[in-house]
Design a protein around this nucleic acid. Structure first.
Lengths: 210, 210
DNA sequence: CACAAAATCCCGCTTTAGGGGGTATTTTTT
DNA sequence: AAAAAATACCCCCTAAAGCGGGATTTTGTG
């Protein structure tokens, strides 16, 4: 695929302005060819195999079958295709779902066309391009899952502490006893090797634990 | 000008992809006509009077004379022209300078073309469109200057409180006495009409005072 | 299922931070 | 010169913070 004369692109995006805008710009950039554009997955699914795209730009917020749900179906039809997600959403879970389902890249819709074209190039070369905000979110969530010594509850409580809440406020907000909050705080301090609110907040923020 | 057959647009923007992308899309939208595009103010300045545009899309980061410096010159040449700023910068001062110098609108470059076209329409009608981020920045800075009841020192102290610092830590960090910090805190509470750290932080963050 | 990890809860103890109220002096700004 | 901001000190009291211990229940994963 690396040495094909042209890279075939398909776009599935319901907003006509965005769809045609990207299509025009990509189609006028060598060696890219926009083989088809669709406003929904339903209209795309019967054509996609024939289109045989190398790269699909896929919107998340599609009418009918969402981009997230469409992803595994697309990968089943075209196992070797590279999918680049286009979306206005930057919600952590959506992003991770998309990546888990086999998306190769992830961009928000405010991304300039030039960046998208670079992304197509990168994705063909095996890279995983994504917009800085998204990258940051992904990295942060990965760090949260793997690097954080704090449990979810502990991170949650430390976050509330960082908002200036005291133990009784935290307790009632989380529907638990003050004593439980105390225990969590004690464990947080032990884990972070500190002995005050301010230090815990500083360490946690520096390490993006909260 | 409201009733002219076409609205004449000029674009001054050094990035060719962005310039041609916007030009293409705007030119293909009735009743807009892109009369000329330039990569710098130097190349534009001798032509602009002849072009006689109704609206100019102006980049800030131009080679040579910057967009900010070009603005007053443009307004001198074409006093009635509407200028919409395009930029990647969202820095408060730059934005306020541009608006103070007579820009009618302000957008960052990730703005979809459709929004730009809407903006041209609005600007012709006398509106002052800007992208949400920019609007937020402007509003925030206006609020900071005019609405904030807190003095600089008070805002600074409240910020340290929001970081979990206690009074003695704040005192030594600012090289003042704990009692002085107490006084500031008291005044903050009075001004914000609260009586606890958590509430002060909440109010201050909601009103972007810190 | 079984084991570990996480989350929950409780007691006693000491220190100190936080908040209320009041007053006053020195800078800085206008 | 007057106003606004920043500085500093006093007393009082409560509740929060932090330290030490121990215990149970829930959840998750092999």
């Amino acid at each position: 695929m690396y040495n094909k004369a042209v890279t075939r692109i398909a776009i599935i995006e319901d907003d006509e302005t965005i769809r045609e805008g990207y299509a025009y710009l990509i189609d006028h950039t060598s060696p890219y060819q926009v083989v088809n554009t669709y406003a929904s997955f339903e209209t795309a699914k019967h054509q996609l195999a024939k289109d045989n795209p190398d790269v699909i730009l896929l919107d998340i917020q599609l009418p009918g079958v969402s981009g997230i749900d469409a992803l595994p179906l697309i990968k089943k039809m075209l196992p070797q295709v590279y999918v680049i997600i286009l979306t206005v959403f930057e919600v952590e879970k959506t992003i991770l779902d998309a990546l888990a389902n086999g998306a190769s890249g992830y961009f928000t819709k405010n991304t300039p066309s030039a960046k998208i074209i670079d992304a197509i190039k990168e994705v063909i070369m095996g890279g995983g391009p994504m917009s800085p905000n998204v990258a940051r979110t992904v990295i942060r969530s990965l760090q949260k899952n793997f690097d954080s010594p704090l449990t979810k509850r502990e991170a949650q409580i430390l976050d509330l502490i960082s908002k200036g809440k005291d133990r009784s406020q935290i307790a009632s907000e989380l529907f638990i006893e003050v004593e439980t909050v105390k225990t969590h705080v004690k464990n947080i301090y032990i884990k972070l090797n500190v002995n005050s609110k301010a230090d815990a907040i500083k360490i946690a923020k520096a390490n993006r634990l909260i």
